[in-house]
């Protein structure tokens, strides 16, 4: 179990101090295409920051986020034990890398100092028939977490003082997504990865949209209608002109991922989640 613990500490280090190749490539592409001087300047600093962080093994962002784990556990490995090892690895990683201590007791307002506490870090565990244990880790920044939105359709949006009617169809979902991006402006560090889930129960739809952040940027939904919808949302969001750091320009999003769950006849939930440009995720197989 010590090896597993150390493997998770290494995963923390990789995810906190480097950025996935597809995300870095998307940011480089955004710089090549950008014509707005302030956005270009921001993208240049972002890319330099990525290389400083990687070369000196320091966190890309001071907000090392909510640690969110998705583990697929083979038969025979105790889920309770895995949780304990993850918590122990979190304490160690916080000290060693270091990570910022982000776990604050909401009642006493005391920071635990080691990124552990009630339901902190976030751990999702499912079983797998595979032999290997697969652990995905996402470091989810607080700024981009705060700009996420949940909608119940049908309804009327208040978008910048304008009333927009939304019905129960993909067109309604599209309006909700644009509303969420508009309301976020530059506050969650764009260019964003935007993920959307529709349907399900209230708790499911948020978990489902957040899980889409694990998908590679070039991943396309296997459902043709959803795949076309992802493309449409990508183009529309980039047409808003919010741009890198909210300073205007061509790239407001580097990827849009959508997933759908069956819903109850009475309910139609839409959840929109965001990752900041530093969309930090990584995998460890054991």
């Amino acid at each position: 179990m010590l090896k597993l613990r150390d493997g998770i500490v290494e995963l923390y280090k990789k995810v906190a101090t480097s950025i996935p190749r597809d995300v870095e490539d998307a940011l480089k592409k955004a710089l090549q295409e950008e014509t707005e001087p302030l956005a270009k300047n921001s993208l240049e600093i972002i890319l330099e920051n990525i290389s400083i962080a990687r070369n000196s093994a320091v966190p890309i962002c001071q907000d090392t986020g909510f640690p969110v784990f998705y583990a697929k556990v083979p038969v025979g490995l105790s889920h309770e034990l895995l949780r304990k090892v993850i918590v122990e690895a979190t304490r160690l990683a916080t000290q060693k890398i270091p990570l910022r201590a982000n776990a604050v007791d909401t009642v006493t307002e005391k920071n635990s100092g080691d990124n552990t506490g009630e339901l902190f870090p976030v751990i999702h565990i499912e079983s797998t028939p595979d032999q290997a244990l697969t652990i995905d880790l996402m470091l989810k920044g607080g700024g981009s977490e705060n700009i996420g939105q949940i909608y119940k359709l049908p309804g009327t949006l208040d978008t910048g003082g304008q009333s927009i009617k939304v019905e129960r169809d993909l067109e309604g979902v599209r309006k909700c997504v644009l509303d969420a991006v508009f309301k976020s402006q530059g506050r969650g560090c764009p260019p964003y990865t935007v993920t959307v889930a529709i349907g399900g129960a209230k708790d499911q739809v948020t978990a489902l949209s957040k899980k889409q952040l694990l998908r590679k940027l070039n991943d396309v939904s296997p459902i043709p209608e959803i795949a076309a919808f992802e493309k449409k949302l990508f183009d529309d969001i980039n047409n808003l002109g919010i741009g890198t750091a909210g300073l205007g320009g061509k790239t407001t999003t580097i990827g849009v991922k959508v997933a759908a769950a069956h819903r109850h006849p009475a309910s139609y939930f839409v959840d929109v989640s965001f990752a900041c440009w530093a969309n930090r995720r990584g995998r460890f197989v054991w």
Binding site: S42, I45, I46, E48, N49, I52, A53, S56, V58, P59, I60, C61, Q62, D63, G141, G186, C189, P190, T244, A245, G246, L247, C276, W277, A278
Partner: peptide, 13 residues
């Protein structure tokens, strides 16, 4: 004044 979003290593230098 807006500082570069998320450029924590760059700014720490």
């Amino acid at each position: 004044l807006q500082a570069a979003s998320g450029a924590a290593a760059y700014l720490a230098d």
